[in-house]
């Protein structure tokens, strides 16, 4: 049971990094990024490929963050000035392009077979000690990101991105260029997704293209919507709710053993979908409040 909780905690931390990035982009700035998983994928593959080729893991983690940002940069240049719905479509397309590239460039990514034997970050000690250290590292990244995010929210930069979320035209009328701020937000969010992807790859030990489908992006969206868009506490709460539903539905079989194994995946999706519907009807501002105040 302890091992189970440590595992859930680590996965929750990985989701939290993704969700913090998306909350910065959508919750605070209003960027509708439907391609978050693309940057997660870039980070995962970068660190997996480098570390299996013998590059030290601290370096491969840094490279994952850098490459995720490097992928976001040209995307930002061509799409950051688009209206928000168009930006959403472009980013969704981007994440699918990333997935297709890692599927077809077998010489680099081993194609559909994926990359196995990705080294763990902590190799000393027994399995349990390794797991605890991995949990600690993941949560440390989360903590740093949360502190940084709080700093951003309280800064004039944070005020400006909220202004952009509320009314971009008005921001321009005051002599500020929204594109500059949105680009930085896109890069920061991608960096978090890249780090998250690298941690995921080293934690799971095996990655393949089918783990990086748009559904991952939408799980993160569900988390921030259920928790409360635009608030850091909401992001944390949302990830916990998401984990509760994802994991809780595992135990559904104990109460309802008549459900066949193959239906479980669909049932879990159904449960999350139902929760999302109930949230949008009864608590559209999410669990932790609304846009209004921190």
């Amino acid at each position: 049971m302890d091992a189970y909780l440590i595992a859930i905690g680590t996965i929750a931390g990985i989701y939290l990094l993704l969700a913090l990035g998306l909350n910065l982009q959508f919750g605070l700035t209003g960027l509708i990024n439907f391609g978050h998983v693309g940057f997660f994928c870039v980070g995962a593959y970068t660190s997996a490929i480098l570390s299996t080729k013998g590059v030290p893991i601290p370096l491969s983690l840094a490279a994952a963050a850098a490459l995720a940002m490097l992928a976001a940069w040209p995307l930002g240049i061509i799409s950051i000035r688009l209206r928000e719905d168009y930006f959403a479509i472009v980013t969704l397309g981007f994440s699918e392009v990333v997935r297709l590239v890692v599927t077809s460039e077998g010489w680099l990514t081993n194609g559909v077979q994926g990359i196995a034997g990705i080294p763990r970050i902590f190799r000393a000690g027994g399995g349990e000690a390794q797991a605890v250290l991995m949990l600690g590292l993941t949560l440390a990244f989360c903590l740093i990101s949360i502190v940084a995010m709080m700093r951003i929210v309280r800064s004039p930069f944070g005020r400006m991105i909220e202004a952009i979320r509320d009314n971009e035209e008005a921001v321009r009328s005051l002599g500020k260029e929204p594109a500059r701020f949105k680009m930085q937000v896109l890069l920061l969010g991608s960096m978090l997704a890249g780090i998250s992807g690298a941690l995921y790859a080293h934690y799971i030990g095996y990655i393949s293209p089918d783990q990086f489908i748009p559904f991952v992006t939408f799980q993160v969206w569900m988390a921030i919507i259920m928790g409360g868009v635009g608030r850091i506490s909401g992001t944390i709460a949302g990830v916990l709710i998401l984990m509760f539903f994802l994991e809780g539905s595992r135990f559904l079989r104990d109460v309802a053993p008549f459900i066949p194994e193959v239906s479980m995946a669909s049932i879990r999706l159904g449960v999350i979908g139902l929760a999302l519907i109930l949230f949008t009807i009864y608590r559209p501002q999410g669990l932790m409040g609304d846009f209004t105040k921190r």
Partner: peptide, 18 residues
């Protein structure tokens, strides 16, 4: 603007600060 474009989810003070 003809139809005011305030930063609706920010306070008056924050609007002016921005």
């Amino acid at each position: 603007f003809q139809v005011p474009r305030e930063f609706a989810n920010m306070t008056v003070r924050e609007n002016l600060m921005a």
